[in-house]
Amino acid sequence: MSERAIGVFDSGVGGLTVLKEIVGQLPGEDIVYLGDTARVPYGTKSPQTVVRYALEAAAFLVKHRVKMLVVACNTASSVALPALAEHFSLPVIGVIEPGARTAAAQTRSGRIGVIGTEGTVKSAAYTAAIHRCNPSLDVINVPCPLFVPLAEEGWLDHPVTRLTAEEYLAPLRAHAIDTLVLGCTHYPLLKNIIRAVMGETVRLIDSAEETARTVAETLASAYLLRQAASGKRSFFVTDVPTRFEKVGGAFLGADLLGVEQIELDWI
């Protein structure tokens, strides 16, 4: 089992920030990544539809005999984890619980902000996860839907992005939060602008980084770590790979080559 790959899926390219963190912490692991680019974004879909998409993506990865499923999508993590755990006898790691635990542990004032897609914010999944750690914490959620296209456009240090951030983040500044969860896998690319708007005293919680740490801890506790110097990465998408290769290369800071287009089986 330890020689098997880690399976990672997302609705598109955002989950590559999770993959990058996993590679950084576990360079010896093989990873199979699936971006459901034909049906992106998940954030505007109904919970029932997202669950079906997640089951189909996971079934594809399981066919590759992976040893773990990483749901590198906040929307899918907010609604699909119970169904995935029920259908597949593998460890299933989402991106919400790791970030929520860290935020609850690091806040000093007890006021935590969460930014994400409309779907993630409507689910209140981060609020529930943070309150499971400490029900007395005050959590304010703000949707930031334009952050995703801005990140994919590469406008990471652009006046339009700065103005958008100032507009979105104003309620969080007014609430005097001291901890902010980046509740979308695209948002780590915008860390610099978010930090500039929020100020240096606000701690930014990168769910991708915390998820990778949870993946490492889970594999280590199950004696499933692969003992190798470097691993292999395989990339699959459900639509033509051209844009995924272009945008994904910017996310990873390296060229994305050999991305294969596939079709998912309907469940």
Rank of each mutant, 00 (worst) to 15 (best):
M1I: 09
M1G: 15
M1Y: 11
R4S: 13
A5Y: 15
G7S: 02
V8A: 15
V8F: 15
V8D: 12
D10M: 13
S11G: 06
S11T: 04
G15W: 03
L16V: 04
T17E: 00
L19I: 12
K20S: 11
E21P: 05
G28K: 08
E29L: 13
D30K: 07
D30W: 09
Y33F: 13
T37R: 13
P41L: 14
Q48S: 06
T49S: 15
T49V: 15
R52Q: 11
Y53W: 10
Y53V: 10
Y53F: 15
L55Y: 01
L55E: 04
E56S: 07
A57P: 03
A59L: 10
A59V: 06
L61T: 03
L61S: 02
V62T: 04
V62I: 05
H64Y: 05
R65G: 07
K67H: 12
L69R: 04
V70F: 13
V71D: 08
A72I: 02
C73D: 03
N74F: 09
N74I: 06
S77Y: 14
S78E: 02
S78H: 02
L81A: 12
L81N: 08
P82L: 13
L84T: 00
A85W: 12
F88G: 06
F88H: 07
F88L: 13
S89C: 12
I93A: 08
A103W: 11
R108E: 11
S109F: 09
I115P: 07
I115T: 07
T120I: 11
T120P: 06
S123R: 00
S123Y: 01
S123L: 03
A125E: 08
Y126W: 05
A129K: 06
R132H: 01
C133F: 11
N134S: 06
P135N: 01
S136I: 12
L137H: 01
L137Y: 10
D138C: 14
P143M: 05
P143H: 02
A151S: 00
A151D: 00
G154W: 02
D157L: 15
T161F: 00
T164D: 04
T164Q: 08
T164C: 06
A165G: 02
A165K: 10
E166C: 12
P171S: 02
P171K: 07
R173Q: 13
T179D: 00
T179L: 01
L180D: 07
L182P: 01
G183K: 10
C184D: 00
T185Q: 09
T185G: 05
A196G: 15
V197H: 04
G199N: 03
V202D: 01
R203V: 05
I205F: 10
D206I: 05
E209L: 15
T211Q: 04
R213V: 12
R213L: 15
T214C: 07
E217S: 14
S221I: 10
Y223D: 13
L224W: 15
A228T: 03
K232I: 13
S234G: 08
V237K: 07
T238W: 10
D239W: 11
P241A: 14
P241G: 09
R243L: 15
R243Q: 11
F244I: 05
K246A: 15
V247H: 06
V247T: 09
G248V: 01
G249L: 07
G249H: 04
G249D: 01
G249A: 03
L256Y: 02
L257M: 08
G258H: 07
G258A: 03
I262R: 08
L264G: 08
W266C: 14
